[in-house]
C-alpha cells in the first residue's frame, strides 16, 4: 500500500460520504444521477466477486463491503425512500446508461485480463467504471444550479482515479515494473472525462462563484 493508493481510496470513500451526507441531511437527491449510481453498483459487484474467495487484507475486504453497501444504499434511497425519491431529477437524468453495458462487456470478452469468468467480469467492471460517470456529467450540464455537495461529490470521484494513476506510476517504478494496460488505459479515459468538469469546478472555486457547466 502506498500513500497515493491510500489517498485514492480515502478520496473515493469521502466522495461517497459526501453523497450520503447530502442525501441524508437535505433529504434530497436533486442533481444526482440515479443511472450513474446504478452503474456503480454493477461496477462494484462485478469487481469484487472474489470478496469471499480471496482474502487480501482486512482493509481490502472492509473497503469492498463498504463500497458495495453504500452504493446499494444510495440506489435504495433514490429509488425507494419515500421522501428522497420524489426529489430525483427523473426528467433530466435521461442518459441511456444501459447502452454502456454491452460495449464494455464485449470489450471485456475481447480484451480480458485472463479468459476466466471472474477476470472477464473484473475487466468489464474496469471498463464500465471508466464511463459510469457519463450520466452524472450530462445531468450536471442540465442542472441550472449545482449545489456544493453535489459538486464536491463529483470532484472527489474524479480525483480518486487521478490519484490511482499516480499510484500505478509509483508501483510501476518501485514494485511491479509491469505494464497493466486494462486499468491504466481505462483509468486515463475515466479521468479525462472529468477534465472539463475539473476546469469549471476549480474556476468556480477560485472565483468564489456558483459552479455552472456550459450546456
Amino acid at each position: 500500500m502506498n500513500i497515493f493508493r491510500l489517498a485514492g481510496d480515502m478520496t473515493h470513500l469521502l466522495s461517497i460520504v459526501v453523497l450520503l451526507l447530502k442525501i441524508r441531511t437535505t433529504k434530497s437527491c436533486a442533481g444526482i444521477s440515479l443511472k450513474t449510481q446504478e452503474l456503480y453498483v454493477i461496477v462494484f459487484i462485478t469487481r469484487y466477486l472474489d470478496l469471499f474467495t480471496r482474502y487480501v487484507s482486512f482493509y481490502n475486504t472492509a473497503m469492498k463491503l463498504v463500497f458495495i453497501g453504500t452504493s446499494v444504499a444510495i440506489v435504495w434511497y433514490m429509488r425507494l425512500h419515500k421522501v428522497v425519491k420524489q426529489t430525483y431529477s427523473r426528467d433530466e437524468d435521461t442518459f441511456k446508461h444501459y447502452l454502456l453495458i454491452p460495449p464494455c462487456f464485449i470489450l471485456a470478452l475481447l480484451i480480458p485480463l485472463e479468459f476466466t469468468v471472474t477476470e472477464i467480469l473484473w475487466s468489464f467492471s474496469i471498463y464500465l467504471e471508466a464511463v459510469a460517470i457519463l450520466p452524472q456529467l450530462l445531468l450536471l450540464q442540465r442542472s441550472s444550479n449545482i449545489d456544493n455537495l453535489t459538486g464536491s461529490y463529483v470532484f472527489l470521484l474524479g480525483a480518486y482515479r487521478a490519484l490511482y494513476i499516480v499510484n500505478w506510476v509509483y508501483r510501476f517504478f518501485t514494485e511491479t515494473h509491469k505494464i497493466r494496460w486494462i486499468p491504466w488505459i481505462s483509468g486515463l479515459v475515466q479521468t479525462a472525462l472529468y477534465a472539463d468538469f475539473f476546469y469549471y469546478y476549480i474556476k468556480s472555486w477560485k472565483n468564489h462563484e456558483k459552479l455552472r457547466l456550459p450546456a
Partner: peptide, 10 residues
C-alpha cells in the same frame, strides 16, 4: 492471479 498487483487494489 492476473497481472501483478492489480488484485490487491480496489
Amino acid at each position: 492471479p492476473g497481472d501483478g498487483g492489480s488484485k490487491d487494489e480496489l
